[in-house]
Simulated scan of single mutants.
Amino acid sequence: MYNFIKKNNNKEIQSYLLGFCFSIILTIVPFLLVIQKTFPSKLNYILVLVCSIIQIIVHFVYFLHLDFSSEMRWNLVTLLFVIIIIFIVVFGSIWIMYNLNHHVMYTVL
């Protein structure tokens, strides 16, 4: 029984360390890209965005332990629901603010 707990604990620690290393790499790479200015700015924006999306996935997999197994299915459904709600709130607010700004009548004093 002790060996099973020890192996399981060791596997979990390895998962956290691997996720931490990926997170550090995915943080340093965009930082260096921006500081060194090796690529044009539009390509830098795209690379930083790609690194941030990959880092979000790394956090979900290695720290939150989300996967596509049947045990985690409800956690993934809940995560998808939260992402949809955040998307609606953020982009709905931007849309409303844009329309308010567009329809405001400016007067010259």
Rank of each mutant, 00 (worst) to 15 (best):
N10R: 07
V58L: 06
I24G: 00
N44V: 06
T38S: 11
T78N: 11
N10I: 03
L79C: 06
I25N: 03
F20E: 03
L80P: 00
D67M: 01
N10M: 06
V29M: 12
N44D: 15
L33E: 13
S70F: 05
H65V: 01
V77G: 04
I56P: 05
I56V: 07
T78I: 08
N9I: 05
N10D: 11
I5D: 11
L47G: 03
R73C: 05
Y16G: 01
N9R: 12
I57A: 10
F4W: 11
D67T: 02
N8R: 15
P30M: 02
V50F: 14
F22Q: 03
F39Q: 15
Q36Y: 10
V58C: 10
N3S: 09
L18S: 13
Q36A: 06
L26A: 00
K7S: 05
T78W: 09
P40V: 07
T27M: 10
F22N: 04
F68R: 04
K11Q: 12
I54L: 15
L26M: 07
K42T: 12
F22S: 04
K37Y: 02
F4Y: 14
S15K: 11
I53Y: 13
I57F: 12
F81Y: 08
L18P: 01
I53G: 05
Q55V: 01
Y45M: 13
K37I: 02
